[in-house]
């Protein structure tokens, strides 16, 4: 079951039977998942369960070995022609990726560019489906707006190393938003942060959750997952074990594996 933001019309993600192996290890064993436009899906599970790999298949940073992923009905990484799946050329893959923003655990900001340059770089050079590239000035103006939105307008000229971890991650979110994506992927966005900086990042994501952009978030912050998700997905050993509303998954998990995982990660006070 998924809850849909009323205004969203784009950003439907359909994952069907996705498999992926690294060498002999199969990390995704046929994963299927649908996220409605504007939905907020939070993926939880033990480390090594394939959460991050699944996330990275959605924007084709990882090529799948089997199954497929589509966004608003369009296949990711492939094109159907004459009854065959043709692999897309890099240029077209890049084009697709502009509709799928990604925020990394280690921020991956470009350290030699200022906060504003980080945000304004991609829009000027990336080819986007059905959109013209803005001028440099236009991209900077929009970049400042986005930095303002994450509360960092006054740090626009700072280099990433001059910012705290939480500020860096907020810049990274602004950078992902600059391409006006349909979908935003968060790969453990707060795992590299000091505890007191986690909330400033979560607050920004919380605000995005109501914006109509589809969010897919891999995280270990269970309290946040409960607050913000309309679907919680529990993964273990390359499979989706259970999915449902936060209420269903956190307070009344059906599967023993889910129950045993939450008994280890949830604070006793949280376990109502």
């Amino acid at each position: 079951m998924t809850v849909t933001a009323a205004t969203a019309t784009r950003g439907l993600v359909e994952i069907t039977g996705v498999r992926k192996s690294f060498g002999a290890a199969e990390v995704l064993k046929g994963v299927s998942l649908t996220i409605e436009p504007g939905g907020v899906a939070v993926i939880v599970g033990p480390s090594g369960s394939g959460k991050s790999t699944l996330l990275r298949t959605i924007n084709h940073l990882e090529k799948v070995d089997g199954g497929h992923i589509s966004i608003d009905g369009t296949l990711v990484g492939y094109e159907v022609r004459g009854g065959r799946l043709h692999e897309l050329r890099e240029k077209d893959i890049l084009k697709q990726r502009t509709e799928i923003g990604m925020v990394f655990q280690n921020f991956n900001l470009f350290p030699h560019l200022t906060a504003l340059e980080n945000v304004a770089e991609a829009p000027v050079v990336a080819q986007r489906p059905g959109k013209a590239r803005p001028s440099k000035e236009e991209a900077k103006r929009r970049g400042l707006e986005l930095l303002d939105r994450v509360g960092l307008k006054d740090r626009a000229d700072a280099y990433p190393r001059q910012l705290s971890g939480g500020q860096q991650q907020r810049v990274a979110i602004a950078r992902a938003l600059a391409l006006d994506p349909k979908i935003l992927l968060f790969d453990e966005p707060t795992s590299a942060l000091d505890p007191e900086l986690v909330n400033e990042v979560l607050d920004v994501i919380r605000e995005l959750a109501t914006s109509g952009t589809t969010l897919i978030i891999v995280t270990h912050e269970m309290g946040f997952a409960r607050d913000v998700a309309d679907t919680v997905v529990f993964m273990d050993q390359g499979q989706i074990v259970e999915q449902g509303t936060p209420q269903e998954i956190f307070t009344n998990p059906q599967e023993p594996r889910t129950r045993s995982f939450f008994s280890k990660v949830l604070e006793p006070a949280f376990n109502i």
């Binding site: 890049l94 697709q96 990726r97 923003g101 990394f104 991956n108 900001l109 991609a122 990336a126 986007r128």
Partner: peptide, 16 residues
């Protein structure tokens, strides 16, 4: 240069 830099750039659709 850290591999994450290339990944971030690729994820943003920046041409090769």
């Amino acid at each position: 240069v850290d591999q994450g830099q290339l990944e971030a750039a690729a994820a943003l659709g920046i041409p090769a």
